[in-house]
């Protein structure tokens, strides 16, 4: 029972992390109508920055804040140099152009940091575990991730739904020309939104860094999961991204933890252990297929887009 509870929390933590990535992806798509495959590269860049800056400053928190700012700057630079030229083009152009960016980023990281991975050690105050229920210990770092991502989700909600910038973002999503005609600097707005998405990806990357190794290609695996999340949630919908990210995170974590056991009760032990790793990694794709059969536009489709 403790194990189950712990795995649920792990799933929640993973899901919230996926949400950070998917929110940026869905925001950029919903507003700029841009498919950004290089989103995973920004996640990777955030992790590399965090590992480097933390080593320089000797402080995890300082390193994280610096990395966040640096990823924001990289994101805005990418928008100004490349993405701006891709708006209004065919989606295939987006896919190819940002695929080129992935090649560039992967190789640039290899050039700067070398082919070996980095590690980001946790500060002592986050390395332990805390007692959240009587007799139940949980990693304080994972708990910190849950708290941070939940606050970011709340911040995003307030930003998009309750501020003037958010209003412009929503207006820009539904009618770009109209907002521009009303005198809003739409170019600057787009740069800001892209930077925000980049910073969210960078935040996810730097938070994941102490749990996994920081390495080239780390963004590519998780990018696919972020795609699955956006497809399930409905492209362009932040609320959908949150719900879908939690679904995917929890299903994936619980599936990997308990599916082999469930399979063992149905099949012979050898067959079960041979098939379990393959089948449990398929669960989220099955979920996606089921959602698509029922609602081809995702759970919370943005509708007009």
């Amino acid at each position: 029972m403790t194990l189950f509870f712990e795995q649920c929390l792990n799933g929640l933590q993973f899901g919230l992390l996926l949400f950070l990535l998917a929110a940026g992806l869905t925001l950029v798509f919903g507003i700029m109508d841009l498919v950004n495959l290089a989103h995973g590269s920004l996640y990777m860049v955030g992790a590399y920055f965090a590992a480097t800056f933390a080593a320089w400053t000797g402080s995890f928190v300082f390193g994280a804040v610096l990395a966040l700012c640096a990823t924001l700057v990289v994101g805005m630079a990418v928008e100004v140099i490349v993405m701006r030229r891709l708006y209004g083009r065919d989606h295939l152009d987006h896919v190819l152009g940002t695929f080129g960016l992935i090649l560039f980023f992967d190789e640039a990281v290899r050039l700067i940091w070398g082919p070996a991975g980095l590690s980001l050690p946790l500060p002592s105050w986050l390395a332990g575990s805390v007692q959240i229920l009587p007799g139940f210990q949980y990693s304080s770092y994972r708990l910190a991730i849950i708290v941070v991502t939940l606050s970011v989700a709340a911040f995003l909600y307030v930003l998009v739904m309750r501020t003037r910038i958010g209003m412009l973002i929503r207006a820009g999503a539904s009618n770009r020309e109209m907002v521009g005609a009303l005198g809003v600097n739409i170019k600057l707005l787009y740069t800001l939104v892209f930077g925000l998405g980049a910073a969210l990806a960078g935040l996810a990357g730097l938070m994941q860094a102490p749990i996994l190794t920081v390495q080239i290609g780390m963004g590519e695996n998780i990018l696919i999961l972020a795609f699955v999340v956006t497809v399930i949630g409905g492209i362009g919908s932040i609320r959908g991204a949150l719900v879908a990210a939690l679904l995917v995170g929890i299903l994936d974590t619980l599936g990997r933890a308990f599916f082999p056991d469930i399979l063992r009760t149905m099949l012979s032990p050898t067959a079960a252990s041979a098939l379990a790793p393959a089948l449990s990694s398929m669960l989220i794709y099955l979920l996606m297929a089921i959602v698509l059969v029922i609602k081809p536009e995702g759970l919370f489709s943005a509708g007009n887009k």
């Binding site: 498919v35 989606h91 497809v231 398929m282």
Partner: peptide
């Protein structure tokens, strides 16, 4: 959606054989 879904299903096949 089509781009992302075909991508995701291909990755599913990738993980399937990896396992």
């Amino acid at each position: 959606y089509f781009i992302m879904i075909t991508l995701a299903f291909a990755q599913m096949a990738y993980y399937l054989v990896s396992g």
